[in-house]
Design a protein around this nucleic acid. Sequence first.
RNA 1: GCGCGGUUAGCUCAGUGGUAGAGCACUACCUUGACACGGUAGGGGUCAGAGGUUCGAACCCUCUAUCGCGCACCA
Length: 879
Amino acid sequence: MAELPKRYDPKAVEPKWYQRWLDNRDFVANPESSKPPFSIVMPPPNITGMLTLGHVLNDTIQDILARRARMQGFEVLWLPGMDHAGIGTQTAVEKYLRRTENKTRHDLGREEFLRRVLEWQDKHGGIIIEQLKRLGCSCDWSRQRYTLDDAYAAAVQRVFVELYDKGLIYRGRRMINWDPAAQTAVSDEEVISKAQKGYLYFVRYEIVEEPGNFLEIATTRPETIMADTAMAFHPGDKRYLNLLGKHVWRPLAREKIPIITDEAIDPEFGTGILKVTPAHDTLDFEIGERHNLAIIDLLTPAGRVNCPAVPELHGLERFEARKKAAELLQERGLLAKAEPYENNIGFSDRSDVPIEPRLSEQWFLRYPKTKEALAVVRDHLIRFFPAHWEKVYAQWLENIRDWCISRQVWWGHRIPAWYRKEKSETCEIYVGLEPPPDPENWIQDEDTVDTWFSSWLWAYEIMDPQTRKKFYPTSVLVTGPDIIFFWVARMIIAGLEFKPGKSSEIGDNIPFHHVFFTSIIRDSQGRKMSKSLGNSPDPLELIDKYGADGLRFGLMRIAPTGQDIRFDERQIEEGRNFATKLWNVARFRQMHGPSDAAPQIDAQALSIFGVEVLVRLNETIDAIDSAYREYHFNLVAQHLYSFVWSDYCDWFVEAVKTDIFSEDETKKKSALAAMDLVLSATLRLLHPFMPHLTEEIWSLLALGRGSIQFEAPPEKFAFDGVANVVERRQLVSAIYETVQAGRNLRSASKLPSNRKIRFILRTNNKSISEQIPTLSRLLNSEELTLNPSYTASPGTPVAITPLGELFLAVSAGDQVRERERLDKEIARIDEEARTVAAKLQNSAFVERAPAAVVEEHRRRLNDLNAQLTKLKQAREALN
RNA sequence: GCGCGGUUAGCUCAGUGGUAGAGCACUACCUUGACACGGUAGGGGUCAGAGGUUCGAACCCUCUAUCGCGCACCA
């Protein structure tokens, strides 16, 4: 057995074990196994992405679940992969091309551009997979998938064609969200509203039928005036009723436009008149449809004004055009005023530029199975953790609108649709897996599908049939709540619609049984981690500094459920410190001879401290079990932390040093056996959180024959033949309390920690005598004597303990200091006693509270009074 | 406007009806036979506020304030 170095060195240990696990194919799932299945599909990171703390959090949680399941005897599949991230990757490569070659993708052409993306992907892609390996993730890398794998891509096409054939996918000209920077349509979910400061412009339109009279409207977008095709007010708005049917002159690109009424107008807003611009606003578009208004599109895809009729504005970028239009109106005396104004604007999640509502020909999906998708979550066939996300999910599904799935992007899954070349009124569409039989007459749609239209098949399409049969539906999905609509909801719909399960039963087709929503990690100031802020620590650096296990444990300990996490590197430091603590206490065990892989606890020889630590171990096992059931990883970590550090290291190990250093072989053996049992159990409980460290200690102490990875979680200790557990625990806690009182005495008497001092315990309790060496050790005293009739000289510091009165023998007692100390102590206890007594005098409390609670109060009061009497005696002696 | 979540020690957070907790930070003492990435002791909180239910409320109910998030609106 190799001697353990003083400090644990994760840099050497972690890669060693990870490589060994890979070599042993420990993470490879066997679909033919007779063990029950446990499966997780990894939310695929972007292929060109880098590991962020968000990934660390999510993937550590998945790893914990996978490793725990493996120990529990499940056949575990944790299936990893990557996402091609259509818009994101394309934008990155376009940026690169512009910088290096000053070219756009159109300069290169589709084929060449895609070749460049592949080149870029080969160079920068997949780094994150290596980073996940450094974190210790136990994924089945042999099954790693990519959303652009041939088989996967084929499935995406198949699904498109199937839904088209069912009439659920259709092509239509509708208002969509246009991202002028990426120059593509995006879905409603990709639009995030943000407050933006601007102006509310009050513009005067001359009434055609009443020259010299003007109608005033309020708008935030004067640059769209040229596309106005009506003016509208609410039918109930009496102010303007006389204008109905009349016209106004459009002030820019002068034209006569009608004045109409529409229920959608809010009479309270601005002047109560809306300029209707059907091409550039969703509400206006709807009004236009109701009134058959013309649609004038005056913005180019890049967001520039296209209006030769107004040369001052033609060609200007939309926000410059806004300023310029206001100036033009001002010059012509048509701008009544411009008020500073803040409103919410939809921004593109991707490009962070304002979305342009735009009329466009796109592909849409009418969602199938929305009712069923609601039902499976409502009826808990799928359970969400934390459960409150169920409501958010339901709200989305209840208000669901058709999904715009086409993207004007080249990188991705191309839409399998072709249009007949010769122009005709009704364009003929062909949708199929294969190109049409006479391809020369057809032209394929240039667009690709929304990346999420490929990801929604992820839960099953990454499994081969045999794997799917064993492992689908998956056990649990771990992901961030920010993609509950993008991904979680759509995967549920996909499962219900495409029925990839082994039967057509709903329960066999849902993609997962549980969904655990992780937290979002923020920086210490509560801001979201982002590249541009530079507030996102590099997890690889953290791994270098603290070890993967330290990072994992530290992060898990602060990971609350359903709330944001404020990241603080000090928490990671604690994780590392905990690893060192565990390492050292294992080292301590190793110094006293070889461990026993199957420690036998001799019920007769088991010390009271052994009883105590084993009870606490049992309690910890229970607490951890129930924390896991609710996915409360922070609680699991916290219980392990305090059990190891406090119960085991601070108390048990310190207490049983008496036995370990004693000549009594029975006692020594018993103490070491208890240590082995606790260490073995603790390591197994900790392994999912700190896989490398626990494997290393497991192996160095030879606590098992094979890898800890497949060891069953610890059973609770049975206490067969162990007598008087309750009484013995009471004794232990009395001893620990006495120790603390004694240490307090030392400290209050200002005696340095290293000064050896003498204590006298005055008690009639003879049975305590065999614990004197341990008490003495824990008190770091030179001598502790039992003396039932000790008479202390006045000024001797004393503490009233459950074991009796503990005196601190100091040669020259500082009477003044001791007097003060006693006064404080008396006051403290007196106050508590009064509180308890008051409660007991409350007849309502005595009658209605549970008997045990009342009894507890009575006992406490008696204790306090006894202490008071003794302390007062000691105080008397000082006068 | 609708909905969700938070507000507990200087900081990060536990705590679902019975004497307010942990870690960090702080103060004092200590290199004692696993560990200074450590040990011991200590200071520090009218649990956001107000009302209610209850013998008893950080916890349950109502309202208010405040922060964050989602949806809707956004002329």
